[in-house]
Amino acid sequence: MTLFGLTWDYLTTASSWTGDGALLDRLVEQLLLTVTALGLALVVALPLALWLGHLGRGGFVAVNVSNMGRAIPTFALLAVLVTADWPGPAYFGPYGRAGLATLIALGLFALPPLVTNAYTAVREVPADVLEAADGMGMSGAQRFWRVELPLALPLVLSGVRLALVQVWATATIAALVAGPGVGAIIVSGFARNHYSEGIGAALVVAVVALLLEIAAASAQRIVRAPVGRRP
């Protein structure tokens, strides 16, 4: 039987989906990791980046954070976290083996797109608009909430979308350090020469990635609509 046939068999067998550590279990685990990490990163990054953008300071931080995030391999950071005494490979509640290490890595890799986009978004609000706001006698806070934030929102959201893609990818890679997520099935499939399992799980990861991207793009379109007057 061909590899495609075996993969199809694997994906259409109920026991591949249900049961301990099967596809559904792992999928829920990975979605939980993604949502938690993205939420934490949003809470940390957005207030800071938006505030710096409002003040117009710390631009070099935004750019350098982004460049460093690209140069450090996700896999290497995960490996360091798992090999260290803390957080190490311990189980962490519903997040599975090496759950804490994975959450930290996911959160860190979500920061660059969030920080860079939010900062740039506020900085790119046209100067004449800001002058008009000042001329109308708006206070700094008013200017931020009524002018800068609404105008910056589309670009902030595209940062969130990038972060989501990044977090989902990193959550998959966590399996390379025996971590949680659907990636664990990919890695174990390849390690045991059960390629059809690895390829089947990879297909699931890819499809969910595309669905997340489509959902994020639609959410972005909905939010953008009222502010759509910008060129």
Binding site: L3, F4, T7, V165, W168, A169, T170, T172, I173, A175, L176, G183, I186, V187, G189, F190, Y195, G198, I199, A201, A202, L203, V205, A206, A209, L210, L212, E213
Partner: peptide, 18 residues
């Protein structure tokens, strides 16, 4: 190309293996 970009590398490599 953006769609392909969203597929995690650990999932893209297995899909090329066949």
């Amino acid at each position: 190309s953006t769609g392909l970009y969203t597929i995690p590398s650990l999932a893209l490599f297995p899909l090329l293996v066949p």
